[in-house]
Amino acid sequence: MTICSTRRSAAALLASLVLAPCAALAQDYPAKPITLVVSFSAGGNNDIRARQLGIPVAAMLGKTVIVDNKPGASGNIGHDFVARAAADGYTLGIGAMGPLAVNPALYPKMPFDPQKDFTPIVMIERAPLVLVTRADKPFKSLKDVVEAAKAKPGQLTIGNAGAGGAHHLSGELFKQTAGIFMLPIPYKGGGPASQALLSGEIDMMFEQTYAALPSIQAGKTRPLAVTSAKRLPSLPDVPTMAELGYPQVTVSNWLGLVAPKGTPPAAVKKLNETFNKALAAPDMREKITGPGNEIGGGTPEEFAAFIAAENRRWAALVKSAQIKLD
Results as ranks from 00 to 15, higher is better:
A86T: 15
K116H: 13
M97V: 12
Y187W: 08
P233L: 00
R222Y: 04
Y107N: 15
P120R: 04
I94A: 05
L169P: 00
L106N: 06
D144R: 04
D113Q: 09
G154L: 12
M123S: 15
Q195M: 07
V122D: 04
F112D: 07
L106M: 15
G165P: 04
M182P: 00
E125V: 08
H168A: 10
T119G: 03
I94L: 08
G191M: 10
T91D: 02
F118S: 08
E201R: 15
A163V: 12
L198T: 04
P223Q: 01
D136H: 08
G89D: 14
S170L: 07
G98P: 06
L232V: 12
A87I: 02
G159Q: 03
P186D: 09
L173I: 13
G200V: 01
A161F: 05
V145L: 06
S194K: 14
E207G: 09
V226M: 00
M182G: 00
P214S: 10
A148K: 03
I121K: 10
L224V: 05
S170P: 03
G189C: 13
F206P: 03
K175V: 12
T221D: 11
K188T: 14
P128K: 04
H167Y: 07
A196H: 12
L106E: 09
R222C: 03
A105N: 08
I202S: 04
S194M: 15
G93I: 13
G171W: 00
Y90N: 02
L224Y: 06
K140S: 13
M110I: 03
Y90Q: 01
L106P: 10
A193Q: 14
H168P: 01
Q176S: 14
H168I: 07
P192D: 01
T91A: 09
N103R: 11
A196N: 05
S199E: 14
I185M: 14
I94N: 00
Y210H: 14
L183F: 08
P223W: 00
P128R: 02
L198Y: 00
G190S: 09
V145D: 00
P108S: 02
P138E: 02
R134I: 09
A229P: 11
T119Y: 00
T91F: 12
G179K: 11
K220A: 14
G93P: 12
V226G: 10
L156K: 06
P104K: 03
G164M: 01
G93E: 05
G165M: 12
Y90I: 00
I158A: 14
F118A: 13
F118L: 06
L198R: 06
Q176H: 09
I216L: 01
G159C: 05
G219P: 09
G179Q: 09
T157M: 09
P111V: 06
V122F: 07
D113N: 15
L173D: 07
Y210A: 11
A161Q: 07
S141Y: 10
H168T: 08
G179I: 08
K150Y: 06
P120S: 08
A148F: 05
M182Q: 02
D88M: 02
K175P: 00
F174P: 07
T227S: 09
A196Y: 09
K143Q: 15
P153T: 00
Q217E: 15
G200P: 04
V226Y: 03
I216N: 01
L213T: 13
L232W: 10
K220D: 13
D136C: 03
I124V: 06
